[in-house]
Write a protein that binds this DNA or RNA. Structure first.
Lengths: 109, 109
DNA sequence: GCGATGGTATGACGAACATCCAACGGTAGG
DNA sequence: CCTACCGTTGGATGTTCGTCATACCATCGC
């Protein structure tokens, strides 16, 4: 491993794809797509799964190089690495979020 | 199985993501991204895996609603449903192929 | 220090997955 | 019809994945 060629590696497309290839994690990424940090205990994460399961999903996202965690006291916030992701895989996050964007448009008004 | 819907409405983003979240299948999709049909026994598919393994991967892609198979005599060709995919998930295929496109650009004059 | 809250680590378990191997079915050619 | 080729099907197997339950650590508030 660790084959840093001229390309800015560290994040593999397959790893990213595998990370978002899950209903819960895809939803997390879509929610995080605004680029702002979100608390891990937020009400958005009401997937009906166990607490440790969420930790697991957050870990997958993090290990895929998609998110970073900000620790503030005893609360953890998670943030999508939009800039890096957009730089490495242009249009990917947008393509992933266009699905939920389409839901917002049309339901309102 | 309701495989004769014809309409890509049954295609789920997570299914598509799960389909491409594999090195071999991602490569297949990238190769098929030109929209043209490719033979299943083509030289492109030299992944060093068993014949039946390729059949398996082709099946995953098809069941995800990403490809269709064209049978001509004893040879099968596979084709990416670009139009339907692009209509349903705008920018997704492009984002998936921008990776290999970047390799082509710059190496060739 | 004690209890409550927020999050992680570990272990277990069933389901899904990728892979191979062997056998089968359909088509082209002699 | 028989042989050769192309691709699929079914079974077997080892691995990865998603989930839960429990235990554990850190911080906040009293």
């Amino acid at each position: 491993m660790a084959s840093d060629e001229g390309v800015p590696s560290g994040v593999d497309l397959v790893d990213v794809l595998r990370a978002v290839a899950d209903p819960i994690r895809l939803r997390i990424v879509q929610t995080l797509a605004d680029g702002r940090p979100h608390g891990k205990c937020g009400a958005h994460w009401d997937f009906g799964v166990h607490k440790s399961t969420m930790t697991h999903h957050f870990r997958i996202l993090r290990e895929a190089g998609m998110t970073r965690t900000i620790v503030t006291g005893r609360t953890h916030s998670i943030q999508l690495c939009r800039d890096e992701l957009d730089a490495r895989f242009p249009g990917l996050i947008e393509a992933l979020t266009v699905d939920c964007r389409a839901r917002s448009v049309g339901t309102t008004g």
